[in-house]
């Protein structure tokens, strides 16, 4: 299948309460590779197997949470077209100059009705994954440093008006609905999982009164065994685990939810299925939401609906 338009999640900027503590955590415990620091003091990371310069940017702030979440698009023409389409849809967009984020081209930023700032960009410097493009090995020492995910994979965001966000992502940016959870009325969605690729989700939302909240940012691991290894590393480093290792019914990923040192939830997961735009969405009813979110426990934990940053 040819991938066009919006290609994948590209970067997230997270707010942290104590930068150096967080840099240690993201570098040594989660095992991302630090790739730079800018004049503002922001620190840039990528997962070892990612090729573009950065995917996680940390900014010291007085509150935790997410500043923005971005997607890479397939070229400058696509970027201009999406900008025009978003405006035609009635959304305000903002152009952020190339270089404002290190090694990143011009960005188009807009705000979803859920209160989240979303960015699109076409260019980010390819710094490679530490192996040559000609006759590479299978992995590098960075693949074993800390939890060492393969990539920043998706985010789950909490906010109001998720159906309006869905309309923008589907109608303007070409996402499709993969799974959703219906509330008691059988009509309104509590949660939606959207894909712009063949992944089971690239971005998900849960309906929540307060706008702009982060539930989790997810990192992909190679296997269930690596998920267990991640749990061991969390235990060794006294990382607060929210739940897991366990499995999601929705997307079928095997997973751990845990918290970074500022209380931002992150997920280390593997598996889940591949999805295609012509597939029908899977529907969950509210009485089965426990099994949908946590397949083994078959109930939501207290933190799932209320602990966000």
């Amino acid at each position: 299948m040819a991938m066009k338009g919006v290609l994948r999640p590209g970067h997230i900027q997270l707010r942290v309460l104590d930068l150096e503590e967080s840099v240690k955590f993201y570098g040594d415990v989660l095992g991302l590779v630090e790739t730079g620091r800018d004049k503002q003091g922001r620190v840039y990371f990528k997962a070892w197997d990612e090729r573009d310069h950065n995917s996680v940017i940390l900014r010291q702030a007085d509150m935790a949470g997410v500043d923005f979440f971005a997607f890479k698009v397939d070229g400058k023409a696509a970027l201009d077209k999406f900008d025009a389409d978003l405006r035609a849809y009635g959304l305000a967009t903002e152009r952020i100059a190339a270089g404002e984020l290190l090694e990143t081209g011009e960005r188009v930023r807009f705000e979803l009705p859920t209160g989240h700032k979303i960015e699109l960009y076409a260019e980010k410097t390819d710094v490679g994954n530490g192996m040559p493009y000609l006759n590479p090995e299978a992995w590098t020492p960075a693949a074993e440093h800390g939890i060492a995910p393969l990539r920043m994979d998706h985010a789950l965001l909490y906010g109001p008006d998720i159906e309006k966000a869905q309309a923008i992502l589907v109608d303007v940016l070409g996402f499709y609905l993969v799974e959703h959870v219906l509330l008691e009325d059988g009509k309104t969605d509590l949660a939606i999982w959207l894909s712009c690729s063949t992944k089971a989700h690239d971005l998900a939302f849960v309906r929540h009164a307060e706008p702009g909240k982060l539930h989790h940012i997810a990192f992909q691991l190679e296997s269930w065994e690596k998920v267990l290894r991640a749990a061991d590393i969390m235990a060794m480093n006294k990382v607060t685990i929210d739940i897991g290792p366990t499995r999601h019914g929705i997307t079928r990923g095997t997973t751990i939810y845990a918290f970074d040192p500022s209380g931002n939830r992150f997920e280390t997961y593997s598996g889940g299925y591949s999805s295609y735009p012509d597939w029908k969405p899977i529907t969950w009813t509210i009485d089965e939401v426990g099994r949908g979110i946590f397949y083994h426990d078959r109930k939501l934990n207290d933190a799932f609906l209320s602990v966000v940053t």
Binding site: P160, D161, L183, E184, D185, T188, L190, R207, H208, A209, E210, I286, V289, L300, D302, A303, L305, S306, V307
Partner: peptide
């Protein structure tokens, strides 16, 4: 502080703007 337990809190008909924040 409080943990919010109700799933439907924050649904439009439940008064989206007034859900308590912890």
């Amino acid at each position: 502080g409080k943990i919010q337990r109700s799933v439907s809190r924050g649904a439009p008909e439940a008064g989206a703007a007034q859900s308590p924040m912890p």
